[in-house]
Computed example of a mutant assay.
Amino acid sequence: MHVDAALLPERRRVRGYILFTFVLAGALALAWKLHHVLLILYVSGLFAVVLTPIVKRLEKIRFRNRHAGKGTATILLFAGIFLALTLFFWIGFPPVIRDFASFVSDLPHRIPQALAKVQRLPLASKVDMSKVAAEAQNVVGAFAAYVFDALPRWATHLFDVLTGVILCVYFILEGEEVYQYFLSLWPIDKRTRLANTLLTSEERVSKWLFGQLTLMAAVAIYMLIVFGALHVRYFVLLGILMGITNLIPVAGNLITITIAIMVAASDSWTKALGVVIAYVIYVQIENAILTPRIMKTSVDLMGITVLVALLCGTEIAGIVGALVAVPTAAMVVVFANEYLVQHDDAPGRVT
């Protein structure tokens, strides 16, 4: 059988495409089979990227005229993290659980009282408050049941957490070797651009994460003081929730402050007004002072980007997915700006 020599390169190209398709399909199938392991690896690597700058700073500490090595610095870092978590679960967590249990048990009595006050407002008399109270109790009851039922399931992931911690330590200790090996897989003429993009991504993600944690701590401490001073019920629970929900732009804090206002209103309208005034003051301080100073060098993510990232991360991997969703989105934005965004530098055009 005679084969035209001019067609051989084309046939080799087609066979190459077919082979690449099968290899890609096999890789995707293997990734789906190992998705749980890959998730642990990814989360561990991401935390290693964030924690490595701290390790480098700790390496500069001198012990008897000697700098701490990377191993010693890593041990000091994780010892500090373990101590902080221990203090939180020993000192801070019990009041939150106590307030949550009291909130759930008191809710059936508090909702009718709050709705009775609301019904005295103009136009509120036209709303069937009995149905509103029933729906509110059902929603809170379902949420409370989910939280308490989910606690044992979360405890089953303890092995995954320990595995992730061990992997994170290895990534910190051997991260430079892994990074150099990864770069060696790319053509030499493209490594510099990729290396600069990876460094920018690492810097931006770290700054964003630490900045966000600072803002979360600021709003939590501020609201704990305000709620405590106003004698708002469950002030520890509500203050901690204000800090956690600060991760979700605008909507997160609005939901929590609405709950706080309702709780305060069940005691008095004056207390509820104090909560509103305190929250408005904090929003002004955060927008005018805290956010510009803390987040000015981080990735500027739009609110819709954060919400979509949180929804996708939660759907893919639950709480762990939500935890790493926004840093992942920040990293994707850096790569998109470098490789996908087309900058129009033509004169006379708006860029």
Rank of each mutant, 00 (worst) to 15 (best):
residue 263 V to F: 01
residue 168 C to F: 13
residue 106 D to S: 06
residue 322 A to Q: 00
residue 340 L to E: 07
residue 97 I to Q: 14
residue 80 G to T: 05
residue 186 W to H: 13
residue 288 A to M: 14
residue 59 E to S: 09
residue 94 P to C: 08
residue 165 V to H: 06
residue 332 V to C: 12
residue 77 L to G: 03
residue 309 A to H: 03
residue 44 S to C: 00
residue 198 L to R: 07
residue 107 L to T: 09
residue 148 F to N: 12
residue 328 T to V: 03
residue 31 A to R: 10
residue 295 M to Q: 01
residue 98 R to N: 14
residue 292 P to E: 07
residue 45 G to N: 04
residue 140 V to H: 06
residue 78 F to C: 00
residue 15 R to E: 11
residue 255 I to V: 08
residue 274 G to S: 04
residue 187 P to Y: 03
residue 82 F to H: 11
residue 269 W to C: 10
residue 197 T to S: 05
residue 77 L to D: 03
residue 89 F to W: 12
residue 91 I to L: 11
residue 148 F to E: 15
residue 328 T to S: 04
residue 104 V to T: 14
residue 302 M to W: 13
residue 142 A to M: 13
residue 48 A to D: 00
residue 154 W to A: 12
residue 134 A to Y: 10
residue 167 L to Y: 06
residue 4 D to K: 13
residue 248 I to E: 04
residue 108 P to N: 03
residue 68 A to F: 15
residue 84 A to P: 02
residue 260 A to H: 02
residue 240 I to H: 06
residue 53 P to C: 00
residue 244 I to C: 06
residue 293 R to V: 11
residue 351 T to F: 15
residue 132 V to H: 01
residue 168 C to S: 11
residue 185 L to S: 14
residue 133 A to L: 04
residue 79 A to N: 10
residue 308 V to L: 13
residue 326 V to H: 00
residue 319 I to P: 08
residue 28 L to T: 02
residue 221 I to W: 07
residue 168 C to H: 08
residue 172 I to F: 01
residue 58 L to G: 02
residue 176 E to T: 10
residue 122 P to Q: 06
residue 334 V to T: 07
residue 249 P to D: 00
residue 100 F to Q: 02
residue 317 A to E: 07
residue 145 A to V: 14
residue 307 L to P: 11
residue 277 I to W: 04
residue 25 A to W: 05
residue 133 A to H: 01
residue 77 L to F: 03
residue 223 M to I: 09
residue 339 Y to F: 01
residue 16 G to R: 05
residue 202 E to H: 15
residue 232 V to W: 03
residue 140 V to P: 08
residue 163 T to D: 06
residue 100 F to A: 10
residue 88 F to N: 03
residue 312 C to H: 09
residue 224 L to Q: 10
residue 49 V to Y: 05
residue 171 F to H: 02
residue 228 G to P: 01
residue 55 V to E: 00
residue 73 A to T: 00
residue 76 L to W: 02
residue 83 L to P: 05
residue 180 Q to G: 14
residue 89 F to H: 02
residue 196 N to W: 15
